[in-house]
Design a protein around this nucleic acid. Structure first.
Length: 326
DNA sequence: TGCAGTGTTGCTTC
DNA sequence: CGAAGCAACACTGC
């Protein structure tokens, strides 16, 4: 379920822990003929080239654009990872079991690794980068040899993730990133811009529009429900019909909810985990998402949270205090 | 037991 | 043209 706050948390971990670390190998068991994955490592020919491109390089930094993780390498190339529904990345020591070699997911955490890495949610390991350098996650008792091998893995139960490689200089012109809208947490992203983008939307419901990556980057199902609840706007409202006072509230709610998500280390209601394999805590702050049938907690409101499919996504809202503008 | 439901996105169909 | 629906995949919970 990684949305902006979850991807942000992961990227912050990668950036703070892996700068200057060398990539010495890469392994995957992804394989798919699905057209959308033609330019991804799920295509075996693409993976062969991918491996040549990255082995021997050093990680320069990691950044985020919308829900994409961007790992910049020393050879002016960038690995792009979109975790889609169930992907999450973890750093640690892993080993390939010889006994289970033929099984679907042969990699498992080293027995001495912390308990979080052994969580069943973290065991759908589809992609493994072997790294070399000082292991930044080594536990205090572990004797850290200077150039020990450790790993960056992608656990992805449903196998929806997309992994590709691009030239760093041309990154933002690439098909994967070129059509993405402004970053909601950018200081430069003002209410005036927000209002003009949404005001220009002639059709589409506000919840759907907020989740459209070409409109605003990084918002998904959970955070769209939460920001609309806080702004008292019904998710089926038409953006162009929302009065400016309420739209301003939405703009503020968008920033505060996303920042709150980051402050709580992301949302682990489902299987998101941070770079150490640990849960985030934002799920305890939900006011709408997956609270169907529970009393609305908006001050003074006596409503009950409803669930309704909106543009084939599950929307959660209170139809008492969230006003429908159409 | 079986099937509805799940965070995302892009392609197909209408 | 835009919008809706489904498919990619695997698992949980009712």
């Amino acid at each position: 379920m990684p949305e902006l706050p979850e991807v942000h948390t992961t990227v912050q971990g990668l950036s703070s822990l892996l700068k200057g670390i060398k990539i010495t190998d890469v392994w995957t068991n992804y394989k798919s003929n699905f057209k959308a994955y033609k330019n991804s490592i799920k295509n075996p020919a693409f993976f062969t080239q991918f491996k040549k491109d990255i082995v021997g390089t050093t990680i320069v930094d990691a950044t985020r654009r919308a829900k994409n993780i961007l790992i910049h390498l020393s050879n002016r190339r960038t690995i792009l990872i979109h975790m889609k529904m169930t992907g999450h990345m973890i750093i640690g020591r892993y080993e390939m079991s010889s006994v289970t070699k033929d099984k679907k997911d042969p990699w498992k955490p080293h027995p001495s690794e912390r308990a979080a890495l052994h969580d069943p949610f973290n065991r759908h390991i589809r992609l493994v980068f072997t790294l070399e350098g000082k292991n930044p996650t080594a536990s205090p008792g572990h004797v850290d040899r200077k150039n020990e091998k450790f790993h960056l893995i992608l656990s992805d139960m449903r196998r929806f993730a997309k992994v590709t490689i691009l030239e760093t200089d041309k990154l933002h012109q690439s098909a994967d990133l070129v059509d993405i809208g402004p970053e909601p947490l950018d200081q430069d992203f003002t209410y005036t811009q927000f209002a003009s983008i949404l005001g220009a939307k002639k059709s589409g419901k506000i919840k759907t529009v907020l989740m459209d990556q070409a409109v605003i980057a990084g918002i998904g199902n959970i955070y769209s429900d939460e920001m609309l609840w806080r702004a008292s706007i019904h998710p089926e409202s038409l953006p162009s019909k929302i009065p400016s006072l309420q739209l301003k509230k939405l703009f503020v709610a968008m920033k505060t909810v996303l920042e709150q998500g980051i402050d709580f280390g992301g949302d682990s209601m489902s299987d998101y985990r941070n770079i150490h394999g640990e849960r985030g805590k934002f799920q305890a702050e939900h006011k709408a998402y997956r609270r169907t049938g529970q009393p609305c907690e908006f001050r003074g409101c006596k409503g009950i949270i409803k669930r309704k499919i909106i543009s084939s996504r599950s929307g959660h809202f209170c139809d008492t205090h969230q006003i429908l503008y159409i």
